[in-house]
């Protein structure tokens, strides 16, 4: 079983990108979840832009770290459903320009329980006309069985 220190948003671990709002086939979307910051996905103009990351299983998220350039504002929503729908707002935060380097952003997780199957990331503003996303890393555990679960089976 994978530990909490492992990145769950890896294509090799079964994660995938369910949706993006722009695409350049020379820089495919899977570049964001290949665990490598050298490869990237870049927007092709205009904001907002969105990405939906679908995890292989439900994960109780403890940390989301994104490597990017020129993003000015992140929004994040999560969904626990099998299909990527009924999202709930997780966070919205401004990002400083990385100037000549990467932006390494750790998203705020205000709630104690952030269990999700899908993460919808939104870029509403950029520090330039285009932004690039190099790596999305999601850490967390498989959720513990809900308290009602065992009680129900005991009956």
């Amino acid at each position: 079983m994978p530990s909490a220190h492992e990145n769950r948003a890896l294509a090799s671990a079964g994660a995938k990108i369910s949706m993006v709002t722009s695409s350049d086939t020379s820089h495919p979307v899977d570049n964001m979840i290949d665990g490598n910051t050298k490869s990237f996905w870049m927007t092709t103009g205009l904001f907002p832009q969105e990405i939906i990351v679908s995890l292989p299983t439900l994960i109780s998220i403890t940390k989301i770290i994104i490597t990017s350039t020129k993003v000015a504002h992140w929004t994040a929503d999560i969904s626990m459903n099998e299909k990527p729908n009924h999202f709930e707002r997780l966070t919205a935060q401004d990002v400083d320009d990385g100037d000549q380097g990467f932006q390494l952003v750790t998203l705020n997780l205000p709630k104690s329980d952030n269990t999700a199957r899908h993460i919808r990331l939104g870029i509403t503003k950029g520090h330039g006309p285009f932004v690039s996303i190099h790596k999305i890393a999601v850490y967390g555990n498989e959720p513990t069985v809900p308290a009602t679960g065992p009680a129900a089976t005991e009956e």
């Binding site: 050298k38 490869s39 990385g98 990467f102 330039g128 690039s132």
Partner: peptide
Amino acid sequence: AFYDLYEENLKNVRRIAGV
């Protein structure tokens, strides 16, 4: 010119990523 801007941006991103 906008396409040129895209290509230029791509170059810059590659440089940051060390590609």
